[in-house]
Each structure stands twice: as structure tokens, then as C-alpha cells.
Design a protein around this nucleic acid. Structure first.
Lengths: 380, 380
DNA sequence: CTGTTAGCGCATTCAG
DNA sequence: CTGAATGCGCTAACAG
């Protein structure tokens, strides 16, 4: 067991010179060494110490060894704040939430997968991950503040973008590497990795129209966010292509915080002549849909045809549904993160554009998915 | 939609003065403003700008408004590197892994709960969480490097400590607020929030002895880590108290990476005269234990008595077990994190010492827990 | 109430 | 191969 040597004969000259303000907790702790301390103690110049620390050439073998040993002995580490004033922080990736964390359904599953992926891509290479949880304490905060503050030099926007988001434009304009796990109509150049929700809605609607339905209801999530807009647009396009009129009463938005999915389902199903329902809520909540159907006196497969969206390949949210739309959100994120890592490391240029198409299944192989638990639900 | 105004008549004088090195990606991005830029543009001194930014008194209403507006307009943010040279970083908490992430069983459940808790405690207050994944690329890395580098000024050590850990001593000596989710025999002063595994092992063994067993096997995890040491010590103390001899053949360590739990169980059970088994592996893997029993030709409750450890209140890993030991690891972490937050904010002193006792259940109310999925299993 | 100035620790010229 | 000097953006002590 070796504790940092506080006093050492080699540098008795600098003894008690100053109590650095930047000491962790300004107390009885071990002293914080600076390059000039090291230089003084080892009898070389600051620049030589710098060369050794940064592994540069231009230092004699003897001097290098002496400095290296001393550095190891006292446990010197360069001050990153000081370093960041001369160069950008290329060892820290920001992970920021561009939406209220309790407004969007960040599932436990998705979050831990994302974290594991970030661990593999960056953590294993010794890089830091810096999370900014975007508190929204007094109005929407600037979720990219860590970038402006130079805390990190690139970031992952983890979550859907609000339709009126402007921050992502500023990130883009800054030239910093970034990737949004979601796109934005108003900003097609946006660096992103996501799924084509518009197409998913279009194909869902088209499928049901082909099966003879003309009064198709849709339960959609993400009100106020881009994925919500895309759902509606794709739905309307499909209706339009089939020459059907759009009835706003047939589209409801469900919020994730309140558990009103069953209620929304019920209300949609008692609308006149509704014969089919697209569950594009993203909640993956079979029970609520079932309860809603039951309360409306509808039996799936007989009185009402269901089509539900899932984030899992070949899996169903509702066994009773006639078809299942798979949104490869995770798969897009993986590809996007790989490309982002290359951009961050300077091996490629940005922006990234990964938009995966959805896949419609009629037969499911993996059974029914569980209702996911969301991050904010774990609290108190 | 408003993009940062690049050129503005108010400050045409400083036009094109310099291209700061610290620009995010040194390219076509928007310019990075400094305090002196703001000062020059608004006709005040740097100190006045500083006062406005930091919300200090001593600025006239007119000047304050002018500066505030300009700052908002150009999207100025203080450079944290520069700031960190004068004061410690009190808005960033390090979350570091003091063990190889693939050597210890960080369950998805525990991890997301921890993250949610950190979000609530720090994220909501606008603080950053900086994860260092401790790569171990070339030999064990210094998992507290973020502290030495002044990247953060306090940290949570998330995971068990290695028995030969020395880094935590240095963290302690630095005076920085920290909390280890695990303790260390060799370092009783260590700031920690954990469970008394020694007591859990003692009580488990004692319980089985009282039920008439004298040949008690133990399956333990965390070889090389403190919780592993405590398991063995508690087990041995109980044997000793009852005047029984310790037989090393009756204690096996299971590693988490390899799935050898069933095999270990089998091997323990074919040992001569073993009549009871403590599953202190921490794997919460009922299936492997069952397979091991079956292969050894033992039927739980008849040929062999099982006692399994769980991390969930009133829940069982194995329904067949005669008793269940609950280790309130999570509960200790919550209390510890609260105290850590207060220490970090200067509202109390360290170190923290939260050591929860385990609880033995004979009757279980919440049913059988699922085998947890671990973070590293999500990769690949 | 406001401004001037001296560093913080490091990387980077530019000289030896 | 080495070192002295400069400045990054900010805060704080010290003047007005």
C-alpha cells in the first residue's frame, strides 16, 4: 500500500510554497503538483516536463527517466482545465437529453443498451462520458451547454427532438461532432440516427386500407416531438393516396407520464365506424390496449383490427394484432454511434445520416414483448 | 428559430480578431466569445461581465441589463477550463468503476436504479455526471484519474473494491468527497455505503448450524474483492463459534463471466456429507443451482438444504430454499448517496459510513426473483 | 458601484 | 536537445 508522499527531500525547496485553490477539497489532502513544481524538483524546465508528460521527443534519456520517475512517485496528473485552454477536450463525450426525461419514454432496456454501447465504443478507449440531464428547472435549459462551456467536444443527443428545437442548429453550426437519435423536419442536414416513423405510419395505414378498412384510428405518442409529427404525416399521406378523408377525431395522442392509454383506446374505439386501430404510442403496453378494447366492447380480430408498433425484431406488443410494425431504433443507434465515433476521432466527416426503414410483420416469432419500465418510473 | 448571430453591428470593432483554438471543431463554426469580447462589445470591464455572469451584486441596473442581453444574444458561456483554474469543479460528479466492469456483476436493474438516483440527486440540480469506465487497457488504470485531473471534485465508486485497492486511500487523503459502494478491511475509515456481508455469511451459517447441519458448503462470488473476503470470514466465524472445523473444500468461488455456477454447485454437493449449501454467489441464478443439485442427485428440502442470498426485500432466488438472506445493497446506496450529496455540497463532513445489516427470511412474500442481466452481457 | 491587474497550469512559439 | 517567455479565459485582490 502506497500513499502519495506528502513531503520528499527532493523538493524541500518548494515546501509550503502555496496552497493551490484547485485542490479537491482545500483541506488536509495531498498536494496537487504542477509542471513547474516537477520541473523545479527534477532540475529541468517546464517544457521538458511537458514533453515527457505528452510523450514527445526531444528529451535526453536521463532527463526523461528522472522526470518520469518523479511524476510516478508523486502521482502527478496534468490539470485538464489548463490543458483545455490550449486545445479542445477530445477525451470526453457528452451525452445529453434534448427532451424532458419524464416526457419521453426512455426505457430501461434502451438506456442500458445505449450505455453499454457507449462503454464499448468510448469507455474502453479511456474516454469519459459526461451526462447532462437537462434539468429544465427554470424553463428549457440549453442542453448543449457542456459543448459551449468546452466541457466536451462532441455529443450524443439521446432522445427525440422537440419540433421547435433550435439548439441542434447551433450545435451543427459549431462544427462539433454530434449525433441526434432522432431527426427534425425543419433541419434535414441534422446529423442523426433514427427510424423513418413517417414511413412506418404510412405503411401501417396502407396495410389496413388494403385489408379493407377505411375508418382507421391511430394512437400516437410523442406529442410535440418530431416522431409524433412524422406519425401523423405518414398516416395522412396513406389516407390521401387511397382517396380517403382525414378525420382528426381518429387520432389521439397519449402522454407517457399519465397512464391514459386504456382511456385513449376506449375513446377512439367508440368513434363511429372505427374498424381498425394503429397503436403507434410506443408504450408497448398490451394490457392498456386490451382494457380499452374491452371497455369499448370490441374483440380484437373480430370487431376491431389492431396493428401495433414494437422496438423489437420479430416481436409483438399484442399477440391479437393482425400485424406488427418493427421500428429498428436500437439498430439505427448502433450504426449511428459507430459513425459518430469515427467523426469524433477525426476519421470521417459529419454529418451522419442513418435513417432505417421499419418492417411490417404478420407472423411473429419471438412472442410478446413486456411493457418496458422507464427511467423516470424508477424514481421514488 | 434563431441561430447565433455571427456578425452584429454592436461589436464590429472586434471582427475577425482571432480564431480561438478552443473552438469545438476549429472550422466554419460560430465564434466562441470570451468575457473580454463581451466587455469590449458592451463597453464595460471584464470584471463587470464576470459579476453579471456569476449573478453577483455590484453592477448598475443599466449595465447589467445591457450585458445580460448581449450574452443571451450571442450565446456566451463561460469556459469551464479557465474557470476550473481558479476554483474547483463543484458541478460535476465522477462516477467511476473501481473494478473491471466484466468481472463484477453490475446488474441492469441496479445500474439503471443507480443512474435514476444520481439523476434525481444531481442531474435535476443541473450538475453533470462524468463516467469513467476504467478501461484497464494496459494494466489496472487509476480509476480516480478524473479527480487528479480536476475533471470533477467528488466521486462515487460504483462497485466492490479489490482487496488490494490503494487508489481509495489516495482519494481519501485528497479530502475530496467520495463514497464507495463497498468497504475495505484494510481501510476502515473508508467513506462507504454497503452491506455487512460478513454478518450475512455468519448468520447464514449459524442458521444452518442451528438446523442441525455441520457440513455446510458455500458458493461465493467476488473472488479478489472485499465482499468475497467478508463472505468467507463470516462463514468461518460461525463455524468457529459452533466449534466446527473449517474445510476449505466446502467453499467454492464462482466467477461471473463464465457460467460455471451449476458446475460449482455440483462439485460442492458431491463432497462427502454435505447437507446444506449457502448460495452467496450473488448471481441470483436459480436455474444453475437447480441444475447443479439435479446433477448431484440431490433434491432440495430433502437431500440438501439451501439458503440463498438476494438483493430484493422479501424475495427469493430459489423457492426451494429453507431461508433467504436479503442484502439491502440498494437501500444502503440510496442513503449513502444522499449523504454524499450533502458532503459534496458542503453541508456536512465526510467520511460517510453506511453499513446495513442483512435480514434473514424464512417466508417469502414477493416470489422468486429473475436472474438479472448484467451490463457487460448486453455487449456484442 | 466599477475597473485594473496578477496569476491559475499548461502548450506553444521562438531562442538558444 | 533544452529553456524562457507569452497568452489561453477567468476570478479575485486591490484600487478608484
Amino acid at each position: 500500500m502506497r500513499i502519495v508522499a506528502i513531503s520528499d527531500s527532493t523538493h524541500s525547496a518548494v515546501d509550503g510554497k502555496k496552497t493551490s485553490l484547485s485542490q479537491p477539497n482545500g483541506g488536509n489532502g495531498a498536494r496537487t503538483w504542477t509542471m513547474s513544481d516537477i520541473a523545479e524538483a527534477t532540475g529541468v524546465s517546464v517544457k521538458t516536463v511537458s514533453r515527457v508528460v505528452r510523450g514527445e521527443t526531444g528529451v535526453g534519456a536521463k532527463a526523461r527517466e528522472r522526470v518520469s520517475e518523479f511524476i510516478a512517485k508523486v502521482g502527478y496528473h496534468p490539470h485538464l482545465g489548463a490543458r483545455s485552454m490550449r486545445q479542445s477536450m477530445r477525451d470526453c463525450i457528452g451525452v445529453v437529453i434534448p427532451a424532458r426525461i419524464d416526457e419521453v419514454p426512455v426505457s430501461q432496456q434502451f438506456f442500458t443498451r445505449l450505455f453499454a454501447q457507449l462503454y464499448q465504443t468510448f469507455g474502453l478507449k479511456g474516454k469519459y462520458l459526461c451526462f447532462d440531464m437537462n434539468p429544465y428547472e427554470r424553463g428549457p435549459a440549453d442542453y448543449a451547454r457542456g459543448l459551449w462551456e468546452q466541457r466536451f467536444s462532441g455529443c450524443v443527443l439521446c432522445g427525440p427532438l422537440s419540433t421547435d428545437d433550435t439548439t441542434v442548429h447551433r450545435i451543427h453550426a459549431s462544427g462539433a461532432p454530434y449525433i441526434a437519435l432522432g431527426r427534425l423536419d425543419s433541419f434535414p442536414e441534422c446529423s442523426c440516427a433514427t427510424v423513418d416513423y413517417d414511413l412506418a405510419a404510412y405503411q401501417s395505414t396502407e396495410y389496413l386500407i388494403k385489408r379493407g378498412h377505411s375508418r382507421i384510428a391511430m394512437l400516437k405518442g410523442f406529442e410535440g416531438y418530431q416522431p409524433g409529427v412524422e406519425r401523423l404525416r405518414g398516416y395522412m399521406r396513406a389516407l390521401d393516396a387511397a382517396g380517403l378523408a382525414y378525420d382528426p377525431k381518429l387520432v389521439h395522442s397519449a402522454s407517457f407520464g399519465a397512464n391514459d392509454l386504456a382511456n385513449r383506446t376506449y375513446r377512439l374505439l367508440i368513434e363511429s365506424n372505427v374498424t381498425a386501430l394503429i397503436d403507434a404510442s410506443g408504450a408497448e403496453d398490451a394490457e392498456s390496449i386490451r382494457v380499452g378494447c374491452q371497455r369499448a366492447g370490441r374483440i380484437p380480430g373480430r370487431d376491431i383490427e389492431l396493428l401495433s408498433w414494437t422496438y423489437t425484431d420479430s416481436a409483438a406488443v399484442l399477440k391479437e394484432a393482425c400485424a406488427h410494425m418493427w421500428l429498428p431504433v436500437w439498430e439505427a443507434a448502433v450504426v449511428g454511434l459507430e459513425q459518430f465515433a469515427e467523426w469524433f476521432e477525426g476519421k470521417r466527416q459529419g454529418p451522419i445520416q442513418v435513417v432505417f426503414p421499419p418492417t411490417l410483420y404478420e407472423v411473429v416469432t419471438k412472442g410478446e414483448v413486456q411493457k418496458p419500465q422507464h427511467l423516470f418510473e424508477l424514481l421514488g
